[in-house]
């Protein structure tokens, strides 16, 4: 019985939140890794792209809510998501036309594009705050739980409850669907293969008749889609606040680098590695240990390795360890 309780507590406090957070990071890291692979630079504006895409979704959600349209028991935001994605696609394509393309034509070095993306970060950040403000925004509606802790306790008779939030369920299901679609696209379609070819060898792709501008356009469209989905899922699960998206940049970069920059499989793996390290190292294990240890050995403290404020430190230390042992990341990235 104690063992079961410990397992349920582990699932409830570590596993389920870890999987949900990992999915969000993975989706974010996929966007970063695609830009790195195709456009050759690390996009500092990715966090703010997530924020803008999510913001558009939030606004459309509010509009739908005011019209009384809902998707009960699912959150209305899912209905608004396509509009958010469309907005983000237009935004990124517009940004590319107005800003990035100039440097691509000039064959500017990737570092210059990184600096350009710093400028874009400022602008996106400003626009988001200008339109929706800097505060927390709630846009979640629908049923809160798939399994609530109370029902779970009643049904199983255990002391520990397992709660599974709707947002966590949606996050995980959406992430799986998106990842399957993305890999199908990259490996099976002509456009996807041309993207991989371009990422592998730009000159040869050109000689093969692949149109670089088209590849870049498709890439931005996919990146916009991934970023918006990641942003909305994170916003539903936690809350929508422009600044938190900017802060997500570090764990997202860490995920992409741990997995191997430019490698989509790596981005997903990296997302989960970072998420689980963050959750396990900052979780207070007392609750679980109490069930597993005899009373005399019960821990007196919280058994929390590091306070939650150090979660960035965790991403970073994991990153450092991976880089020291495997400089190209867990999966062979392009950084050779």
């Amino acid at each position: 019985m104690d063992l079961l309780n410990a397992i349920v507590a582990f699932l409830n406090y570590v596993f389920v939140p870890g999987v949900a957070y990992g999915s969000q990071l993975a989706l974010g890291a996929l966007g970063v890794t695609l830009v790195y692979g195709i456009l050759r630079f690390s996009n500092f504006a990715h966090g703010d792209t997530m924020a803008l895409g999510a913001m558009a979704t939030v606004l459309v959600t509010w509009l739908f809510q005011s019209w009384g349209i809902s998707l009960r028991p699912l959150p209305t935001a899912l209905l608004a998501l396509p509009f958010g994605i469309a907005f983000a696609i237009l935004l990124l394509l517009g940004t590319d036309r107005a800003v990035y393309k100039f440097y691509r034509v000039k064959k500017a070095k990737p570092v210059i594009l990184v600096i350009v993306s710093l400028g874009i970060t400022f602008i996106y950040n400003g626009v988001t705050r200008f339109i929706i403000g800097a505060d927390d925004q709630n846009f979640f509606d629908g049923q809160r739980f798939i399994i609530s802790a109370r029902e779970f306790k009643r049904a199983t008779g255990l002391d520990e409850g397992l709660s599974f939030k709707t947002t966590q369920g949606i996050t995980i299901v959406t992430a799986i669907i998106v990842v399957i679609l993305l890999f199908w696209f990259l490996n099976k379609t002509r456009a996807g293969k041309s993207m991989r070819a371009y990422s592998d060898n730009e000159d040869l792709a050109l000689l093969s008749g692949i149109n670089p501008e088209r590849v870049v356009m498709i890439t931005w469209m996919i990146v916009a889609t991934l970023a918006t989905i990641a942003g909305v899922l994170y916003g539903l699960d936690k809350s929508f606040k422009p600044f938190t998206y900017f802060q997500l940049l570090l764990p997202i970069f860490a995920s992409a680098i741990v997995g191997g920059l430019g490698n989509p499989v790596g981005a997903i793996a990296g997302g989960f590695v970072i998420a689980f390290s963050e959750v396990t190292i900052t979780y207070a294990w007392k609750k679980i240990l109490v069930y597993l240890m005899p009373e005399s050995l019960e821990p007196s403290g919280l058994v929390q390795l590091l306070s939650t404020d150090y979660k960035f430190a965790v991403s970073f230390v994991i990153l450092l360890i991976v880089l020291l042992f495997k400089p190209t990341g867990l999966f062979k990235g392009q950084a050779v």
Partner: peptide, 24 residues
């Protein structure tokens, strides 16, 4: 009027991009 405070980030980005473009 309330959002005027957020103009600052926007302006910084704009200044950076303009300089990078026209006086790199």
């Amino acid at each position: 009027i309330e959002s005027a405070a957020h103009m600052r980030l926007l302006t910084m980005g704009l200044v950076l991009l303009l300089v990078l473009r026209f006086s790199p």
